[in-house]
């Protein structure tokens, strides 16, 4: 039963969705502060190369994770500085961050006399439980068979949800994203809140990036993450800025990425669908979901922060 195509596809979807959860939850936190960060793709790549390098040097996955979090936070500081302090266009700054991060990760991957490119990872994330309860029918592979970061992603989504909607800090954060002037007059330091949450979002994006070369494809290769950063930005809307929903949106996307291949192995009539059509599934899904969620009256209940993308000038009303 545990090797039925359905179970195997869900297991694969969980693996593919995990890095998207980190990046999407990170971007939700950033956007809840009113800052649109289109630099997720670049930040994930910088986190990926930092995490891979740290594990490669030390042999420690923990250090790899720490490095990816720190690199992601530090890298997104550029966007925070440009968009909060300099108040430049967040779209331009974010795009620049992605172009910069893509080049930087590629450069770091092949810098030095003994470059990282083409090197296998020294260690990788594997299932934390093998055998025993992980072999139980259905719930074994679905609940117990994953690597540690899958569970960390669940905790991250839950914690972010609690933080946003159940804590005083979360209330301040949402106020800053909705109406920074009012938040300021209520005593919230808008710039400080935005800096902290842009960096927190960047840290999570960095962790999501590191999941690729340390778990999914344990090697350093140029751009090991595909287009994950862009997908994460779309998933924020699909999840309507709620961390719990990001969990399901990310798994849905993971499933779509996997199903295009599973259908090809199922034989007639599934294999008659052209592979190029199947390859479009995740992206078509994203467009449909975004249109469905953002059109008409529903958009008002979507949860997009009102001040998203708008630079805040303290003295202007």
């Amino acid at each position: 039963m545990n090797d039925s195509q359905l179970i195997l596809t869900i297991v694969a979807a969980v693996g593919l969705g995990t890095p998207l959860i980190f990046a999407t939850v990170g971007e939700i936190i950033t956007e809840r502060a009113g800052i649109l960060n289109l630099g997720v793709q670049g930040t994930m790549l910088v986190g990926a190369v930092a995490g891979f390098w740290a594990t490669f040097q030390s042999g420690s996955l923990t250090l790899g994770i720490v490095a990816s979090l720190l690199a992601g936070a530090a890298f997104s500081l550029i966007h925070a500085f440009a968009s909060i302090t300099l108040r430049v266009s967040q779209i331009v700054s974010g795009l620049a961050l992605t172009i910069f991060g893509t080049g930087l990760a590629s450069f770091l991957g092949k810098a030095g006399s003994d470059p990282l490119v083409g090197e296998p990872a020294r260690d990788q994330f594997d299932s934390i439980i093998s055998g025993g309860i992980a072999d139980w029918p259905i719930i074994g592979p679905l609940v117990f068979g994953h690597d540690i970061l899958v569970y960390v992603a669940w905790i991250a989504a839950g914690a972010a949800s609690y933080y946003l909607f159940r804590t005083r800090m979360g209330l301040s954060l949402r106020a800053v994203g909705e109406d920074p002037a009012s938040a300021e007059s209520a005593g919230v330091n808008v710039a400080w809140v935005r800096y902290v949450h842009v960096m927190a979002g960047g840290a999570l994006a960095g962790l999501g990036g590191a999941y690729y070369p340390l778990a999914l494809v344990p090697t350093w290769q140029d751009n090991p993450i595909g287009a994950a950063g862009w997908i994460a930005i779309a998933l924020v809307i699909l999840a309507s800025w709620r961390p719990w929903r990001a969990l399901f949106a990310a798994y849905l996307f993971g499933a779509a990425a996997r199903i295009q291949f599973t259908l090809q192995t199922l034989g007639e009539p599934w294999s008659n669908i052209p592979a190029t059509i199947l390859a479009m599934i995740p992206f078509v899904l994203a467009i449909i979901a975004m249109i469905a969620l953002t059109s008409g009256k529903r958009a008002r209940f979507l949860g997009a922060p009102a001040a998203l993308g708008i630079p805040y000038f303290r003295e202007q009303r």
Binding site: V217, A228, A257, T265
Partner: peptide
């Protein structure tokens, strides 16, 4: 790489 790994996994699962 992630896509090609996924494709290989789907074949292994088949």
């Amino acid at each position: 790489p992630p896509l090609e790994s996924t494709a290989a996994q789907s074949l292994l699962d088949a």
